[in-house]
Write a protein that binds this DNA or RNA. Structure first.
Lengths: 121, 121, 121, 121
DNA sequence: GTGGTCTAGACCACA
DNA sequence: GTGGTCTAGACCACA
């Protein structure tokens, strides 16, 4: 689980995205307990305060809930994995489109490229 | 020009990509002189050896050529910008498709998403 | 400005309430700049991190906005003071009613007491 | 029974209020024996001297009486619970009205808020 | 054991 | 100068 992190994106954001991805991929389920703050901090080699920030932000995002003295859990919401899958897909798509535009490529070109990529396989 | 770099991708690769992008975007033209190794090292806040490696690799890739005593130049090749534009687009597209697949999304879904994204604007 | 704080309510919550009160009382206006994190920390005799948490939470609450490198400002929203005045009044009322209920006093008694209090003056 | 206390109100006052509340709520009755000074000190995690002061002040207030060698007792006065209930209610009401006034809210507004709160339930 | 709060302080990015 | 991130670590509350 121990990866290196980018420099330019805050570590806590990157950890949040890791967890969002796990839920979207159904590797982590609604209602499931997340590691304690201390454990996750050890896993990722970061300070427990950083993990606390991760969990707190995710609470605000409605992804996890914290039960005092018991731990932090993925919220009990059946549609959460699908929701996150959509959100992340959207984000990746947006990033991709921005990069293509930065390269000076218009939407028609992008569409064609995507079509040819899919058709090829 | 001073950006932060990832940790996991070698810095010299990242600098190469920056330069490839500049050419693809027509911010840098075939035949144009690149900054001296020393200057570019200062720009990016890296070791001059790193820049030397950047220029050497790009020479191998047929993107630049070094003229002893004069400096490093983008090769005189009219089609270079378009070529790099295509290569980079291809790379971005692969990255994107990998991420979507990792999310468990098939090609049909991706096609639909791209269509709706383009249609929307 | 330096007061002592309760023990049982987190300091950051108490500072937030102080600021909310100032806005509700029109001592602080929409668009006005708040002290820097460091300054407010000195004013209240707390750690700058605590003030940062205050400002971050208030950002989530839609009360302030932070402009990087410039500082933290009360949001530009004409109706904010009135909104906060209502929210705080609601909170005080709720607290009061809970205390009265805890004392075993029903709503009719409370109504009578309030009436007599107001009538008296 | 172990609660945290404010900082700005003397602890002995807070303990007195706790006991007054218990009598007002009929959790403690006229004639009933209070815990020994030592026991109450342990309950609240305070110094026995503090409890002694609590009992002494409450004696002055006519709420308890100390019988040498036997301990401290709530006074034998049928109307005491009702009396304390009224006194405390009065105190809470004043506090509440002060807070509302501080918020810039007049008595008419307070009346309306109270009415709507009661009506709602 | 688990999260919550808070301090102290380093270092960085934006302007 | 101002906020943003992160670490290290103390101490507390809830269960």
């Amino acid at each position: 689980m121990n990866e290196s992190f980018d420099r330019w994106r805050p570590i806590y954001i990157q950890i949040i995205d890791e967890i969002r991805k796990k839920i979207a991929r159904r590797d982590l389920h609604p209602g499931e307990k997340l590691p304690s703050q201390r454990d996750l901090a050890l896993d990722y080699g970061v300070n427990p305060n950083t993990v606390q920030r991760v969990y707190r932000e995710m609470e605000t995002m409605g992804i996890v809930e914290t039960k005092r003295g018991q731990g932090t859990f993925v919220v009990e919401e059946r549609s959460l994995p699908e929701r996150l899958q959509h959100e992340l897909a959207r984000e990746y798509l947006e990033e991709f489109m921005v990069k293509m535009r930065d390269l000076g490529l218009g939407e028609e070109v992008v569409r064609t490229l995507v079509e040819s990529f899919i058709g090829r396989e």
